[in-house]
């Protein structure tokens, strides 16, 4: 692989996972209470995908990374302050809802169109990355649909490792049942990898990277086109946080022996 990869990472914002989430009725779809006030982060799995992309691009001369994000412009803007110092990338922004209740098919159509519109993208060298699920819709389907629309028929889900072998083939480890990996070898780009956690720690903040990224991020945000996600055909019936408060029996002042005995009896029951 002498020419390097063109890596497109699909990933957007999700409410910071530690926030309290409560659904409220919305227009086209359910919404979250105080949705606009919730701080957001880059979706954790998309984050892993982005860091893996940057790592691979750094190792493979001639490579380039794009981050394609669909979300409300103002929130994307804020998100970029948190992400842009991490790794070098060029942003492609789409202005639209980032709700978990948007339709994966519509999102895939919008993302595929945006990717098709990237100037200078060489589809033969394309590695399409994303998360294996999102912390919002949490379905794990969008990246595959984008890949399919782009005509990429080598796809991998829940990837923890992607290695370019001598000769250019790509070895991939995907998570499967029971904490094991399925190993596959693909001839090379183009392919789709929807990442699990990968193996890289979150990169440190680099002010230089941030400064460099911001030069392209600001114009990208300024020209972010609207993405229409009408959710047509879907009827939302209920959306709720299940209230399953349990009556917790608190056992204190018992000895370790007594507690252990009770636990063992329970385990065997």
């Amino acid at each position: 692989m002498t020419d390097g990869f063109h890596i497109v990472v699909c990933g957007s914002l999700v409410p910071d996972p530690i926030q309290t989430l409560e659904p409220v009725p919305g227009g086209d779809r359910p919404a979250l209470k105080n949705e606009a006030m919730l701080p957001s982060v880059l979706d954790p799995w998309a984050g892993h995908a982005l860091y893996e992309a940057a790592h691979l691009a750094a190792k493979t001369p001639g490579s380039k990374v794009w981050l394609v994000s669909l979300g409300p412009k103002a929130q994307l803007q804020q998100l970029m302050m948190r992400v842009a110092q991490k790794v070098p990338f060029e942003l492609v922004a789409l202005d639209g809802p980032a709700s978990g209740f948007t339709d994966s098919f519509e999102v895939a159509v919008a993302l595929a169109q945006a990717i098709e519109g990237i100037d200078g993208l060489d589809r033969s060298r394309l590695l399409l990355f994303g998360g294996c699920a999102s912390a919002s819709r949490d379905a794990g389907v969008t990246v595959q649909m984008v890949g399919e629309r782009l005509g990429i028929h080598d796809q991998f889900l829940a990837v923890d490792e992607l290695k370019v072998e001598d000769g250019g083939s790509i070895r991939v480890l995907e998570r499967v049942e029971g904490g094991r990996y399925l190993a596959s070898v693909c001839e090379g780009a183009p392919l789709v990898a929807a990442w699990a956690t990968g193996s890289l720690p979150e990169p440190p903040n680099s002010p230089q990277v941030g400064m460099q990224n911001m030069r392209t991020i600001m114009p990208a945000l300024a020209k972010a086109g609207p993405a229409t996600l009408g959710g047509e055909g879907t009827t939302w019936l209920t959306a709720e946080v299940p209230q399953q408060r349990r009556e917790t029996r608190v056992v204190k002042d018992s000895s370790a022996d007594e507690i252990a005995q009770e636990i063992v009896t329970w385990i065997k029951g």
Binding site: A74, Q77, Q78, M81, R82, Q85, N205, P207, G210, M211, M214, M218, A222
Partner: peptide, 20 residues
């Protein structure tokens, strides 16, 4: 603060880096 930051970002004259 969020509101002020969004006004600043839109103006694009200064860079704001949280987590730093």
């Amino acid at each position: 603060h969020q509101w002020v930051a969004s006004q600043l970002m839109a103006e694009a004259q200064v860079q704001l880096w949280p987590g730093t």
